Simulated assay, not measured.
Amino acid sequence: MIDNLVNKNIKDFENYTAVSNTDEVILNANENAVDIFKNNLIEKFHKKIDELNFNRYPDSDSYKLRSLFASYVDADIDETIVGVGCDEIINNILDAFVEKDEYTMSIEPTFSMYSVFTAVAGGRYASIPCGADFVPDIDKIINSVNEHNAKVLFLCSPNNPTGYTYSKEQLIKIIENTHCIIVLDEVYSDFADAQYLSLYKTYDRVIVLRTMSKAFSLAGARVGFAVAQKSTMQYLYKVKVPYNLNILSQAAAELMLENPSVMKEYLKITIKNRNELIAKLKQFSQINVYDSKSNFILIKPDNYDKVVKTAAEHKISFKYYSSKTLSDHIRISVGTKEENEKVIMLFSEVYKK
């Protein structure tokens, strides 16, 4: 009986299963390897908790938090929205702009949840294959979007999981030759030297996503942001649920944005560790290493099954892929210097180097 009542858009979905975090070295979810918040701001957080009223709902629109974020990215507060992670904001975008059977698109491979959220919203999702080494074909993106009359185009930059980062010229070319909403997903942009949030000021069809989960090391708080022109942002607020972000997440994110130098200090270390890890991985002729400007690295190693088995034996978690496009590929989150050394030791064991 219950099967007859289920939303047909999700009936055949497979549950998203989060990987276990019981391994000794956890490098599978693109999290920050260091708990910056606990190491630097926990005492201030305890004092902040004393000021909170847990019997009251949180600030429905997270005004103080948005004010701090707006100042951080040089935006007007009315051009911002906060969500329970960027996932909630992506759903807001789909609710506001995509109707039944309308298309959303992105390149393949990219963040897998774009397609899932689109299906749940009743839309259709079409992917645009990349070229060699997962480099996007800009003309193909433009032509595909226009052929499908797509409502929304998601562009993740740096792209998860390939690490590809678009240039400003590429993004402008796409924007000016299409007519859809462009969601510029910059959740990993803190790790790159290419950030284009300011494009929203020129184009009212551009919505930029940012997060506290990656460089700011607050994945557990689930805080995401979007920035867009007021004329665009007004529609996201029409579908936003009230009181969406709890008081603890608001308080933690406020503290991080009040102390951005804490994040920037660790950011330099992460970038240094990433570059060193890429260089060491490239010393193995058996590993194809994709360049990355993010906090993760995509590789395609020879003897894939042995790598998986050896990693499990050493209690090291990587992200493994089963899709045709990413068959035998592994995504490695950048860890601490010590964790990265264990990764290199693992591959040295596999390839007897």
Rank of each mutant, 00 (worst) to 15 (best):
M1D: 01
D3H: 05
K8M: 11
K11G: 00
F13K: 08
T17N: 00
A18D: 10
D23M: 03
E24R: 11
E24G: 05
V25I: 10
I26K: 14
L27M: 13
N28G: 11
V34W: 07
V34L: 02
V34Y: 09
I49H: 02
D50M: 07
E51P: 01
Y57T: 01
R66Y: 04
A70Y: 05
A70W: 05
A70M: 09
S71N: 14
V73D: 02
A75N: 06
A75Y: 07
T80M: 13
V84A: 10
D87Q: 13
I90R: 14
N91I: 11
I93H: 02
D95H: 10
A96R: 15
E102P: 00
Y103S: 06
Y103F: 14
P109M: 15
Y114A: 02
T118K: 08
V120H: 07
G131M: 14
G131R: 15
D133N: 15
D139N: 15
N143L: 13
N149K: 14
A150I: 05
C156W: 00
S157T: 15
S157I: 07
P161K: 08
Y164H: 13
I175C: 07
H179R: 14
I182T: 04
D185Y: 04
E186Y: 08
Y188I: 00
S189M: 05
S198K: 15
V206P: 08
I207D: 08
V208M: 04
A219C: 13
V227C: 14
Q229F: 11
Q229M: 13
Y237H: 15
V239L: 09
K240R: 15
N244Q: 04
N246K: 09
I247P: 00
A253L: 01
E254W: 06
M256P: 01
E258G: 02
P260D: 03
K268E: 04
K268R: 10
I271L: 01
K280C: 06
K280E: 14
L281D: 13
K282D: 05
F284P: 03
S285A: 13
V289G: 12
L298I: 03
K300C: 09
P301A: 10
K306T: 03
V308M: 07
K315L: 13
I316R: 13
L326H: 08
T336S: 10
E341C: 00
L346G: 06
F347Y: 11
E349M: 04
K352Q: 13
